[in-house]
Design a binder for these strands. Structure first.
Length: 428
RNA sequence: GGAGAGGUACCCGAGUGGCCAAAGGGAACAGACUGUAAAUCUGUCAGCUUACGCUUUCGGAGGUUCGAAUCCUCCCCUCUCCA
């Protein structure tokens, strides 16, 4: 089960942005299973694509036999990390945080194996919640130099806009987390986004000073898309990992729409396909690269929503955009269906209407607005005037068009906004 | 507490009494071209309206005026310098 070359693998796949003492850490990871941790803020009721890098990092490590601790930062979430933020964060109530944590835990189980203690999930509220202020100041606070903290880039930015004392303490709490995990579980490594570098170092330092032991920090690159956008933003907002908040079909679409320049990187980060196969993608272009995108989308969807959902999403994409046969030798380890995929649009987002509602001949603009497919009726009108609305494959050119029974084909009306947004009205 | 600067639409940012639903840029969306990519060109980008037009918007609340993002009063917030 244990394999000693995870560091090389992480490095090869591009996961390593910065690391403290690379040689020592490599030795440690080669010597045997290491307990490592990643912190996750329960600030929303679902994880999103922005978390995926860290999740995949944890997943890779676990596959090589190391033991992950996912720490739900429900204690620190009540403080709010100022890193990378220009404004003070909205603070959440305790109840909200607990509810969010619960959902996040379930989601993580899709990526990590928690059986037999192979992975742990802990909540830092367990120790932060009962912290005694005086003790904390005396035992932990003494190790932190304000002078030095003020020189950190993370705080510099905030100093210009204002930084409250509560936020200034975030770093101490995160360092304390690391210390506690070291003491309780022998955790030696903390991983996180590169914006966490300073916070993690604080923990490394604290362990060195108090325990006189080596601890390590490894940060992941902060991902932006090739066009410079933050990962995970779409028309409809964040790309959630929760199927109810963001459908597997849309999730698949998110990945298949990746920029050409991102495909190889994303395959390395967000799939478990072997690097030997991914390397080949780096020199692909055109149709071949496009097929690689489909496999990226399939694999990513499979990891998050399961094999069946990934197949459905792929079939739906095939129905909506025209299928293409995936060559058998392209990323051969992928379980994506090869050959011509039979189109099946069952996974395309839909809404249900009754025949009676259709018979009332509602105007298309009203329907679109009601279904929240557009921002407003005026928005819908402008979209139609610009030629961006299609009904049953035909372009709609009349802003006053009303729905009618004749439009129902095979029990539904097929709507499309622009080239990509498909929506079905199932008629009952 | 004192002195100064500032708060404009998703973001940046121009606008100092009517021609301002507010320049310009970015983002976003649509069309053309394509490969469900990128780049490019074109259009759209507060709400309601087929349209004429109406309603709401320039930190908040009042006021002056025929007319206010623009002038006055009070308040809130941010930044810089001083305490």
């Amino acid at each position: 089960m244990f394999r000693n070359d995870v560091y090389a693998e992480l490095n090869r796949r591009g996961f390593i942005q910065q690391v403290t003492e690379p040689e020592k850490l490599q030795q440690l990871l080669q010597a045997g299973p290491v307990t490592y941790y990643v912190g996750i803020d329960p600030t929303a009721d679902s994880l999103h694509v922005g978390h995926l890098m860290a999740i995949m990092g944890m997943m890779q490590m676990q596959r090589y036999g190391h033991r992950p601790i996912a720490i739900i930062g429900s204690g620190t979430a009540m403080v709010g990390d100022p890193s990378g933020k220009t404004e003070m964060r909205q603070m959440l109530s305790r109840e909200q945080i607990v509810a969010n944590s619960r959902k996040i835990k379930t989601q993580l189980q899709r990526y990590l194996d928690f059986s037999d203690g192979k992975a742990l999930m802990v909540d830092n509220y367990d120790w932060l919640g009962t912290l005694n202020y005086i003790d904390f100041l005396r035992d932990i606070g003494r190790y932190f130099s304000v002078n030095r903290m003020l020189t950190y880039e993370a705080y510099k930015q905030r100093l210009e806009r204002g930084l409250s004392f509560i936020e200034f303490n975030y770093q101490l709490l995160q360092a304390y987390d690391f210390l506690m995990l070291y003491k309780r579980y022998g955790c030696r490594l903390q991983m996180g986004g590169d914006d966490q570098w300073a916070n993690i170092l604080a923990g490394v330092d604290l362990i060195r000073r108090i325990e006189e032991q080596d601890a390590f920090c490894l940060t992941f690159p902060l991902l932006t898309t090739a066009s410079g956008q933050k990962m995970g933003k779409t028309v409809s907002g964040a790309v959630w990992l929760d199927a109810d908040k963001f459908s597997p079909y849309d999730y698949y679409q998110y990945w298949v729409n990746s920029d050409d320049r991102d495909v190889a990187r994303f395959l390395a980060f967000f799939t478990l396909l072997p690097m030997e196969e991914i390397e080949a993608v780096k020199c692909m272009q055109g149709a071949e690269l496009n097929a690689a995108k489909a496999i990226l989308a399939f694999e990513a969807t499979k990891l998050t929503h399961g094999e069946a959902a990934a197949q459905e999403a792929m079939a739906a994409a095939s129905a909506a955009f025209g299928g293409r046969a995936l060559p058998a030798d392209l990323l051969a380890s992928s379980s994506a269906p090869r050959g011509q995929v039979k189109g099946d649009d069952a996974a395309v987002p839909f809404s249900v209407m009754t025949m009676a509602e259709i018979a009332r001949a509602p105007r298309l603009v009203d329907v679109l607005a009601e279904l929240k497919l557009v921002g407003s009726k005026g928005d819908a009108r402008r979209l139609i005037q610009g030629g961006g609305v299609y009904l049953n494959q035909g372009r709609v050119d009349d802003i006053n068009l009303c729905l009618a029974a004749e439009q129902v084909q095979e029990g539904r009306i097929v709507l499309r906004l622009g080239k990509k947004r498909h929506h079905h009205l199932l008629v009952q």
